[in-house]
Amino acid sequence: MPIEIPKDKWTGSIRAVTIGATSAEGGTRAKSITVGGQTSMPYLHYEAPMPNKPVIAIEIKSRKPDDWSPLLADAWGEAMADPAQWAKKAEEAGADLIVVALTLADSPEDAVRVIKSVLSGTGLPLIVWGPGQAEKDNELLVPISEATKGEKIVLGICEDKNYRTIVATAMANGHLVQARTPMDVNLSKQLNILISDMGMSKDRILMDPTTGALGYGIEYGYSVMERLRLAALQGDAMTQLPMIVTPGFEAWKTKESKVGEGVPEGWGDWKARAINWETLTAIALVESGADVVVLRHPESVKRVKSAIEELVAV
């Protein structure tokens, strides 16, 4: 029997957002990256073609982290002590973007120096995260923003209690912002509204709906992302932004990834399980509509990248 395939007719679409600027575009990046632009739910090519595929960012730190899993330290080795080296290695590992996470120990001068060195170490576009404390974030991000004017860096992380300064400096220096809210559709929308009320173009916002790792609340993030994407396709302008998610950060916080000894036997081999934890967290989020996936382990990067290739294949 001939079956008519039901197709959703959406009225809305996701904005295409470009990160990074080449010299022709006013920056120094080897290439820029565009995400978003979808007009259907993820990978349903029979409904609509997918103009841009999800990309992978690898997270590096401005200083060698002392609390990361030894599995990650094994994978990156000495490069972890030098952000520029680390970024280069990340690029080789298949990253489309580099996330540089600053720490509380960084001074504004340190931070600017690190970012400049990373910019020279890799041609990939950057995302820069403050250490996550409002005053310190502003203190570090403003000079970075000014020192890298025109690079179209993504500055983060804006939250509802601290977004004004970051947005203002991003606007003044031609950057983008990452807008994070804690796993709630309404809060995501609200922050996007607050940021665009300041006059920020919606083509320069990545929304970060936050997600838990596998076993640690991933289902909330998963459904929030599906709902945001559905709302966007239904025409809600305030949700029509590409989504950035941080499964690497979330998964490597968990005991399942971090700890190799004294855990239940049923968890199996440590390294394989840890990488599965990050990879499966990432895949669930890719299935629910992630556009930028921030990872930590090169093996996960390889696996997720290959899965994305399969998913975008028509």
Binding site: L214, G215, E256, E265, G266, W267, G268, D269, W270, A272, R273, N276, W277, L280
Partner: peptide, 8 residues
């Protein structure tokens, strides 16, 4: 393979 089964 418990290392895959458990996360699944």
């Amino acid at each position: 393979k418990p290392e895959l089964l458990y996360p699944l």
